[in-house]
Nucleic acid binder design. Sequence first.
DNA 1: TTACCGCGA
Length: 708
Amino acid sequence: MVSLPILQFEEKIVQTVQDNPVVVIIGETGSGKSTQLSQIFHRHGYSKSGVIAVTQPRRVAAVSVARRVAQELNVILGEEVGYAIRFEDRTSPKTKIKYLTDGVLLRESLSNPELSDYSMIILDEAHERSLNTDILMGLMKRLVKLRPSNLRVLITSATLDGNKVSDFFMNCPVLTVPGKLYPVEILYSNERPTSYIESSLRTAIDIHVREPEGDVLIFMTGQDDIEKLVDKLRDKVQSLEEGSCMDAIVLPLHGSLPPEMQVRVFTPPPQNCRRFIVATNIAETSLTVDGVVYVIDSGYVKQRQYNPTSGMYSLDVVQISKVQADQRAGRAGRTRPGKCYRLYPSKVYQDELLDVTIPEIQRSSLAGSVLYLKSLDLSDIDILKFDFLDPPSSDTLEDALKQLHLIDAIDTSGSITNVGKIMAELPLEPALSRTLLEANEYGCLSQALTIAAMLSAETSLLPGRSKHSEKKRKPPPDLPDGSGLGDHIQLLQIYEYWHQIDYHIGWLKDNDLQVRGMLFVRDVRKQLSQIIQKIAKGNLDVQEAESERERRRDYKNLRKALCAGYASQLAERMTLHNGYRTIGFKSQLVQVHPSSMLRTDDDGMFPDFVVYHELISTSRPYMRNVCAIEVSWVIPIMKKLENLNVNRLSGGSDQVIDGEQRKSSSLLQQKNLAIEQDDRESKIQAARERFLARKAEREQSLGRKAKK
DNA sequence: TTACCGCGA
């Protein structure tokens, strides 16, 4: 422990922090920054006037680092040293050092914007640029000015962007602490391969027959490629002449693998056996596999990005950044000197790879974050001018404002409404928190709570498709089908049924539902109920579904509430086929996702209107999780769209024109808006006409059916 | 007729 590099710099660090409100500490892997910084300042009395907080982007990290520090200080976890993550607060009045996820600290600043409990806040792993850490950095910049005498902020970052963070914090000092990584030799390919699966395969086998023992970690982009490579690698290894080289085990590693399969990488291999671990970027930061000596880096990653104009996410395979490439290489040098095989030329690394990964804040929809910032009620801060380390585009911010206005979270001048204030307290995306409030008015809050909770865990419910699922294609188990109304309703029915049979675990297994996911849903639902309790008008328990469902089989009120919540996520079916056009955003042609439970009518047609939870472009643009709604609920929303004025939402820039640039952009915005509005009016008109035409057509079709 | 990079409240 004494050998940790950071301890040699203790004096210097303490001195610098004493003299400066913000300090950036660049600590490479193995420097001990996550466990030692808090202890250093605890020793130097900083925990006497308040708690020392250390944020982490991930839950497991917050827990495991807290546990380590408690051990090192020889105290009981939860007393002097504790942690706080969602659903689990292990702190006490005695706590002096508190590890917490960045999301939890953000929530805390909602109820206490000055974070007055803390004498020091350490934002750890800031170089990962998680959305929450980025927002916290902006808040910290403001907070150190408000509390100059009794708050110290430390930001830890990786080598490449240390100076940038320093610039952001008014040229604060930057201290560098060396890490404890072993050297990693980088080997480049001469050219980019035509298939990086084949190229990875060749390289892996090459290592296996030529290099001494040590595990091989291979970075691929997704589950499909991983499964392909794992199969090929297993075949190839078996075909090698017996006794010509050591044994080998090939293991896949990615997020949709069930937990018991993921932990297999933590059991060391038998003697004289090499492991090949084929992984997504989960192995870049989240999971650390011991024993890796060789890394094969394809140079690609699958990344989700948001388009604020179309409201659509896309999942694209993109080149990694230099930071990511270095991080991947570093995985080979944790236990001894290693080698990293980059399947691209060094020229590509130098000239083509971005220096840093595009931060999450520039790749996401910001409706939730903007609402959060508005609810903090920082009178000195205008959201559109909020000081971000890397500001999101004005398109993204305007999109967020537009969405928030459509669901009544902000008024026409952009100020947060009472509805918006309540919404911000709920740990949900705005569409769902708005649905809850509307459902409360319609007397179906309990059902809406269930849907919101189910959607919060949605990806971890499905069994993860695998090639073995072909035999499972036999009639799907006895899951409810959403009465044909769509996926939200199905999720509700699944949970209600599970509740009815006393949360029986065996039923989940029989129906390929992930146990952990469903338990998570139960926790989320409980948490949401507690938060909304103070305004709830009815019973919040899961309803006894049987008689209830019979009585209102069409879930009309509930679907109406969903329509209000998803006001910016509407789509209208095309007249002649089952494609849809989106309404709130720039109109796009989209399909109902093939996994959807939405049912067609007797003519094989989907409902005229739906709301969707998410728009995602993979092989084609899809709506994922849809719910049937009625045209009469859509008309008022269209009216509201007609009258929307984005300029006013962003703080009335009609009057305030400061500087040439602002002026021109404002004029441009007005022009675009005018065009959009024309477009919109004709769209609404056309929609009405199409609706009437279709109705007539429907009536005629009765005759067609009779012929059959 | 097709699907799922990774985190978090």
